[in-house]
Design a protein around this nucleic acid. Structure first.
Lengths: 125, 125
DNA sequence: GCGCTGTCTAGACGTTCGTCGAAACAGAAG
DNA sequence: CTTCTGTTTCGACGAACGTCTAGACAGCGC
């Protein structure tokens, strides 16, 4: 379940070199913008952002769905849907071990997004 | 325009201290998640991401709408709508000087979002 | 004043998103 | 094999989004 037959995916970008310089350096090309925007869109929901945070801050680097679901006043399928969105955006990885499924963050992707938003030290403001 | 008269805005967060530690350190509280997610959602559209990039990378720190609009195969009102979204998310500032309106990035906000996505140096990956 | 250009607002339309309940799938335990 | 629990997929519905056209507002020049 990597992704559809789209042109690019964030995972592809991560596999290679750092995809883009910071947005303050030069304009993002249209193709990269589509891929990167999909990653930001995945983070653009409060539930998913908290899920991402819980996964990224898990003590062992991974966390069980059974621990994520009860943390929100939402149904199981809804949480699963959000996790799928994060998965398709390339932000997290899932692995089934026996009965439970464990989620793990992809630090490389997060670092790329952070680098994209980096700006030089402020001159005026 | 999800949270107009809501509890917080990203601009408020920026005015004060750094709002949140990186998501890899601890789980984002629900209130902060709502504000931060709205910022990521604003960046979650290819057009807006490119607009943001063009604004942030403008040589003089600001750029005229008349320069942004012809860069996309979209109508003027549509571009204006996207700029309004970026404005309401607190990511950019607008100023009218005579006939033209100039947009300028808010580096502090971008830095906060970048800091949020920062993760420690990779152990294995 | 009048017209012209640039930008934003208002309303409408089709698409996408977030949520749910019901059902299907995967493993573990009797 | 049967049953039970955990997780995902499937359809459906209302809300939000992205886009458009038409109109309104702000400055400049005649």
């Amino acid at each position: 379940m990597s992704n559809q037959a789209a042109t690019l995916t964030l995972t592809d970008l991560n596999a290679g070199q750092p995809c883009c310089p910071p947005i303050s350096e030069r304009r993002i090309p249209a193709e990269s913008a589509a891929v990167l925007a999909s990653a930001f869109k995945a983070l653009g929901d409060p539930v998913r952002l908290q899920l991402m945070s819980m996964i990224a801050s898990a003590p062992d680097g991974e966390i069980c769905v059974c621990e994520l679901t009860p943390a929100f006043p939402l149904s199981g399928p809804t949480i699963s849907h959000h996790l799928k969105t994060l998965r398709q955006a390339g932000l997290v990885d899932a692995e089934r071990r026996g009965t439970w499924v464990y989620y793990r963050a992809r630090p490389g992707i997060l670092r790329q997004l952070a680098a994209l938003l980096t700006v030089e030290a402020p001159a005026g403001s």
